[in-house]
């Protein structure tokens, strides 16, 4: 059902064909996906546990699991387009993908550029630091170097909450942020629950210190795509009631939300 790497060559041609069709008709994306028999979902495959490749180098992770459920219930094929973070939104607004499932944290400013569906996961941002470090609150981070992955929800939240004098260092991806912690280039990092669990599993040199805040993540839809937006919200409600979102959260994130905010 899922074609990925081998489909890239085709994706090049297909994307062009698909996009020009979109522009020519300028109709609604929901109808188009159904007619086309395929949904194109933008996912970053370099942000585990949301988007990653498994041992067989196939797309995997929480975002991929949700995309699979959506394709199943639409009754269409799923095509995943791997994307770097700068391309997430341009891919969406220039019709290269139908929706973006890419651990997109919801903020008011971002909602000016795209529409968010209801949340599919609420992450908790926490401070991780060497076990020996005495860090228990935001005050303890003053004068310390705190690493975070740029443009993530983790970044938004620590930037917002950090007390004057905290030295925030932004890296381009999670691997670099974690490496900065491991190599002692930063005193602490901000991370989601899943990444924190993974680090704990790997080593006991580092531990969770405290939670900074919770942040909901949604699916990104083009502005004005109301039919698709409404269908996705319906789908998210149904997947929640059937327990399938919870199952995906458990499998990939190791934590299950008690409830998801709806708006």
């Amino acid at each position: 059902m899922m074609r990925f790497v081998k489909g890239l060559v085709l994706a090049a041609a297909a994307t062009a064909a698909l996009s020009s069709a979109t522009l020519a008709q300028a109709t609604n994306t929901l109808d188009e996906i159904v007619q086309r028999g395929k949904i194109v979902v933008g996912i970053s495959l370099s942000t585990p546990p949301y988007g990653m490749t498994d041992a067989n180098l196939q797309p995997a992770g929480f975002d991929v699991a949700i995309a699979n459920l959506i394709a199943r219930d639409l009754g269409v094929e799923l095509e995943i387009l791997d994307q770097v973070s700068q391309a997430r939104i341009p891919n969406l607004t220039s019709n290269k993908v139908d929706i973006v499932i890419s651990s997109l944290g919801i903020t008011a400013e971002r909602a000016k550029a795209i529409m968010y569906t209801n949340a599919i996961y609420v992450d908790e941002q926490m401070i991780i630091a060497p076990t020996s470090a005495a860090i228990a609150s935001l005050e303890d981070l003053v004068g310390k170097r705190v690493g975070v992955t740029r443009s993530t929800t983790n970044d938004t939240i620590i930037t917002d909450k950090a007390i004057e004098g905290t030295n925030i260092q932004r890296f381009e991806d999670d691997a670099a942020t974690n490496q900065a912690l491991f190599s002692g280039q930063v005193d602490a990092i901000v991370s989601g629950v899943a990444a924190a669990n993974a680090i704990n599993k790997e080593t006991d040199q580092f531990q969770r210190k405290f939670a900074v805040r919770q942040s909901p993540m949604g699916i990104g839809v083009r502005r004005g795509d109301f039919d698709l937006h409404q269908w996705l919200n319906t789908e998210i409600m149904l997947l929640w009631n059937s327990g399938e979102i919870q199952a995906a959260q458990q499998e990939w994130l190791g934590i299950v939300n008690e409830e998801l905010p709806r708006f």
């Binding site: 994307t15 990653m52 490749t53 770097v84 391309a87 991806d173 999670d174 691997a175």
Partner: peptide
């Protein structure tokens, strides 16, 4: 990689983030 092509550097990014062994 910005236009979605999974070339050498992008594969390195993907693998590095899955293994957390960037070096």
């Amino acid at each position: 990689s910005v236009v979605g092509i999974v070339e050498l550097t992008r594969t390195a990014q993907i693998v590095s983030n899955a293994t957390f062994k960037p070096l």
